[in-house]
């Protein structure tokens, strides 16, 4: 094992430990207790929160911004695939040939989406005024993560750089908004609880 392997393992440990801290804190704090009599069932509402309520045709944040929405979806798919391949690469399992080429091409698209989202954040005055350095750094790190994954699949000599950049991402994860990877699920859960208790979700046809 090289120094960059150790760096990555330590970074991964830090990332996982802080992630588990956040997750553990959420679970320990638990659900709000609601003394009002329920008008609906929270189970189906929580399921709806993760499924039907995420339908892009039901959310103005999606259908009013389809190019951004699609870019975001692709960007996240790229992130998930890159995370999966991280463990493959960490285990020294080689991906070669046409498979590597397909993955690399996919990351070029998804990384390009990430770059597009970053440019939009910089160019649009409204987004720029809302943004903090964390917003830019988070995007840059994840976009680089995807692009360096693509490069290292095709050029094994890039692996040291791959591990260093990935380590940076893992160490940065608990620092800023990338933690939404954990809190997104909690937010959808709480939204389902809130609307489900009141009988708003799942929606009944009018």
């Amino acid at each position: 094992m090289q120094y960059y392997h150790y760096l990555t393992l330590v970074s991964l440990a830090v990332c996982l430990a802080t992630s588990f801290y956040h997750l553990f804190r959420l679970v320990r704090l638990g659900n709000p207790k609601d003394y009002a009599p329920a008008a609906g069932r929270t189970g189906p509402a929580i399921r709806y929160s993760f499924t039907g309520a995420m339908n892009p045709m039901k959310k103005e944040s999606a259908f009013l911004h389809l190019p951004t929405y699609v870019s975001g979806i692709l960007y996240h798919l790229g992130t998930f695939l890159a995370i999966f391949l991280f463990f493959i690469i960490l285990l020294n399992i080689r991906i070669e040939g046409i498979t590597a080429g397909i993955f690399a091409a996919f990351f070029l698209i998804t990384g390009g989406c990430g770059a597009g989202i970053l440019i939009k954040r910089f160019v649009h005055h409204e987004l720029r005024s809302l943004s903090s350095p964390d917003d830019y750094i988070s995007n840059l790190l994840v976009t680089f993560f995807q692009l360096i994954t693509a490069v290292s699949l095709l050029v094994p000599a890039a692996l040291p750089l791959y591990f260093i950049l990935t380590s940076l991402l893992l160490l940065y994860f608990p620092v800023g908004k990338l933690k939404h990877a954990i809190y997104f699920f909690a937010a959808r859960y709480h939204l389902g609880l809130f609307y489900g208790w009141r009988g708003v979700w799942p929606p009944k046809p009018m």
């Binding site: 804190r25 638990g30 987004l127 917003d135 809190y183 937010a187």
Partner: peptide, 13 residues
């Protein structure tokens, strides 16, 4: 409970 810290930590701008 976890509701407040969930929403305080969720916005991605």
């Amino acid at each position: 409970d976890s509701k407040l810290i969930t929403h305080l930590n969720s916005c991605v701008h």
